[in-house]
Simulated assay, not measured.
Amino acid sequence: MTATTLTTATRTGRSLVTAAEFETLAAFCAEEYGLERCVAEQVVDQALALVHVMGTSGEGASMAPSQSVDPGWHTLILHTGWYAEWCERSFGYFLHHQPNSKVRTRGLMVDVVGRLQAAGFEVDERLWGTAADCNPPACCGDGPCC
């Protein structure tokens, strides 16, 4: 008798767009927000996953990006025509960004990370302020680690 292990493959936010679209978004994010390219790629990846989960779950009002991921969502929105088409194609409606940075608590970020993971996305917890070794560039700014 052989034991089989079932593994659930995770997906990335980057997988939700074409390579050319991701390249455009990551390059813009790096330039516009002064991020190293590798960081901008992670930020855009996480923003795509977040917006997708917000849009497909219909629970966007109860979710928010971390301070580190927010530039990724701004990057998406600033590509207005593309963003509108992507929203329509991905979940059937335009998902508005209604900022409220005062709700960025560690508890909310942990909840958002859990929702992203439940939807099958890879999560870079350093960008959400939920990593065990939290540090200032990765924290959302409300905990003792910052």
Rank of each mutant, 00 (worst) to 15 (best):
Glu85Leu: 15
Leu116Met: 05
Cys87Gly: 07
Phe121Thr: 02
Met1Gln: 14
Asn135Cys: 14
Gly114Leu: 11
Trp82Asp: 01
Thr18Trp: 11
Gly13Leu: 08
Cys145Arg: 15
Ala20Pro: 04
Glu125Arg: 13
Met109Cys: 02
Gly72Asn: 01
Ser68Thr: 05
Thr80Pro: 04
Thr24Lys: 11
Ser90Trp: 01
Ser68Gly: 00
Ala9Ile: 11
Thr10Arg: 11
Thr18Tyr: 09
Val113Pro: 00
Asp111Phe: 07
Thr56Gly: 01
Gln42Glu: 15
Glu125Ile: 00
Val43Glu: 04
Thr5Pro: 08
Gly143Tyr: 00
Met54Lys: 13
Asp124Ile: 04
Ala84Phe: 03
Met1Ser: 15
Ser101Cys: 00
Trp82Leu: 10
Asp70Val: 08
Glu32Gln: 15
Ala131Thr: 05
Cys134Pro: 05
Ala3Trp: 09
Gln67Trp: 02
Asp124Cys: 05
Asn100Ile: 00
Gly13Arg: 04
Glu23Arg: 11
Arg14Gln: 11
Cys38Val: 10
Tyr33Arg: 12
Lys102Tyr: 09
Ala9Leu: 12
Ser66Val: 04
Phe28Met: 05
Ala26Phe: 07
Gly72Gln: 03
Arg106Asn: 00
Val43Tyr: 05
Phe94Ala: 10
Ser90Cys: 10
Gly129Phe: 15
Leu25His: 12
Ala84Tyr: 00
Gly107Met: 12
Arg14Glu: 13
Thr24Trp: 04
Leu108Gly: 02
Glu125Trp: 00
Tyr83Asp: 01
Met54Ala: 14
Leu76Phe: 13
Cys38Ile: 07
Leu108Arg: 07
Thr10Gly: 05
Arg89Leu: 08
Ala132Arg: 13
Ser68Glu: 00
Arg11His: 10
Pro137Asp: 06
Ala119Val: 05
Ser15His: 10
Thr105Glu: 02
Cys134Leu: 03
Ala40Lys: 10
Asn100Leu: 02
Ala132Ile: 05
Ser62Asp: 13
Ala3Thr: 14
His52Cys: 12
Leu35Val: 06
Thr24Ser: 11
Pro99Cys: 01
Ala20Tyr: 06
Val51Glu: 13
Ala61Phe: 01
Glu41Ile: 05
His52Leu: 06
Val44His: 06
Glu41Ala: 12
Glu88Asp: 14
Gly13Asn: 07
Gly143Glu: 02
Ala131Phe: 04
Asp70Phe: 14
Val103Ile: 12
Thr4Trp: 14
Trp86Val: 09
Ala19Ser: 14
Pro99Ala: 06
Thr4Glu: 15
Thr12Ala: 14
Glu85Ser: 15
Gly143Phe: 00
Glu41Lys: 03
Trp82Lys: 10
Glu23Leu: 13
Glu122Leu: 03
Phe28Glu: 09
Gly120Lys: 10
Glu122Val: 01
Met109Phe: 01
Arg89Trp: 08
Thr18Arg: 06
Ser57Pro: 06
Glu125Phe: 00
Thr18Ser: 15
Val113Tyr: 02
Ala49Lys: 01
Ser62Trp: 08
Leu127Tyr: 07
Gly81Glu: 01
Thr5Glu: 14
Ala132Trp: 09
Leu78Ile: 04
Ser15Val: 07
Pro65Trp: 03
